[in-house]
Design a protein around this nucleic acid. Structure first.
Lengths: 254, 254
DNA sequence: GGCGAGTTTGTAGGATCGTAACAACAGAAT
DNA sequence: ATTCTGTTGTTACGATCCTACAAACTCGCC
């Protein structure tokens, strides 16, 4: 069995099929159509098992049965199978979230709790960044060394907020980042002061208004972890600390 | 636990979560946020299990962790959770079907085999009906007693084919069906001859050209089962038999 | 020590995997 | 017609894996 095939089988399993079901379904697409014997001969699924597996695939709407002797099986088209699975997914998702929605705490309770949350993985940090940027009313500071951490959705959100009159500052040691975001109307760019500890593992920094912040680090293996806090005193203090340390030497009193 | 909640949990399980994961996720939405103790107190998940379950939910991107003592958990918003699950679903689906597509037999090989296939459940019969109708080049006969078996997609396909110059005849004992489809330009309607055995369990009949046919029956519990055959001699013969028996008495020679 | 938080280990039950035995049947050989 | 042989479809059963569930254990703190 090829690697590709194993991966496909794993994917089917994550979609809710058993490995036998995945194997039989794939085999029938290879064959066009076939009997239990045919299927067993090109897979490691025992022939005696093919019948019941095919039956459950029929229940899922992924294959059709020819009532003859021997019984022949025929997979539905790929398009039809994809649609069947999508319908099933959407039905389950709606059912699940409808209930969650009905019991959910309207907990947007003025995030005044002193909470710092952790987010792992790039995609989720991306989401959280966009979230925080969108919530800003007055001021945004966005910084990163790495071009790949400026997604198009982040760029779009920055542009939108700049248009809405929010003061947007982009700080980066990376010229590409500055050029790309500086080109947007209403965005001011800056270079971080040299005296700052320029840790090679720093990822992004997001400051939204005076009380929301996100900081992320990028690990050796390119994975990203972020901490964030919104509407908290803690965030305010952190922001003041950071802004003080990044202030230009001229404006410092000490 | 309410019935609604059980259903929601089942739905989450079909989406790939374990029941503990579903319960913890729902509980956190009820609470807004909370510690392992909080979660355990409103569910039947043992407190000692909450930690590992929450960890796996974090891996799935469904909640965030506050590193403090005690650890606090916070679910991501419903929208974000839905999107996360959808992305996961689409990724798995694409991965699975990409491979199937690469190995599939281009087996639309002149469907000259003498095959009769079985399809169970209304939705899948709907799909197959549209399939057959779309394949017709010259002639379509579509019949059903039941208005609910004329989906809008079927109606659209009939209209499209009529516009393309395919001869479309709709046969029904039901006036609503005749009126609805007869209103479409190019569609001829007819009433089945009274002498035909009008089985109360008949569902639909589809004839596409001279060699493709689908027949379905509706069971007592409203479930539908169809047999179909495309491009086969068998289908041709069956069609001739049916057309002979439905011919008007005047044209019969016997 | 006493308590709560968090981790780890162990066990029971269920579903899937994989093997095997069996009856029913069809065709070929006798 | 009878026997033999191979195939089909069904059923049963042990092995394996994962989840659900429980309990013991560690650690920090009062």
């Amino acid at each position: 069995m090829t690697d590709d095939e194993s991966e496909a089988i794993d994917a089917f399993e994550r979609l809710g099929l058993t490995s036998y079901e995945a194997k039989v379904f794939i085999a029938l697409h290879r064959l066009g159509s076939g009997t239990a014997r045919d299927v067993a001969s090109v897979t490691d699924v025992p022939r005696s098992q093919v019948y019941s597996v095919a039956e459950s695939l029929e229940d899922r709407g992924l294959l059709e049965v020819q009532q003859s002797s021997p019984i022949r099986y025929r997979p539905v088209s790929i398009d039809e199978a994809e649609e069947t699975l999508r319908n099933r997914f959407e039905r389950e998702r709606d059912r699940a979230f409808e209930f969650v929605d009905s019991v959910k705490q309207e907990s947007t309770t003025e995030e005044t709790q002193e909470d710092i949350w952790t987010v792992r993985s790039r995609d989720r940090v991306d989401d959280r960044v966009v979230d925080l940027l969108s919530q800003a009313d007055e001021e945004i500071v966005f910084g990163t060394r790495l071009t790949e951490l400026v997604t198009s959705e982040i760029e779009r959100t920055l542009e939108e907020q700049a248009t809405n009159g929010v003061s947007v500052t982009v700080i980066s040691r990376n010229e590409t980042v500055r050029d790309r975001l500086g080109a947007i109307d209403g965005i001011v760019t800056a270079i971080p002061p040299a005296h700052r500890d320029d840790d090679q593992r720093s990822g992004r920094i997001v400051i939204a208004d005076e009380d929301s912040i996100l900081l992320s680090v990028v690990d050796d293996d390119r994975s990203e972890t972020a901490i964030w806090s919104a509407g908290s005193l803690f965030a305010s203090v952190l922001i003041q600390l950071i802004e003080a340390s990044t202030a230009t030497p001229e404006s410092e009193t000490a």
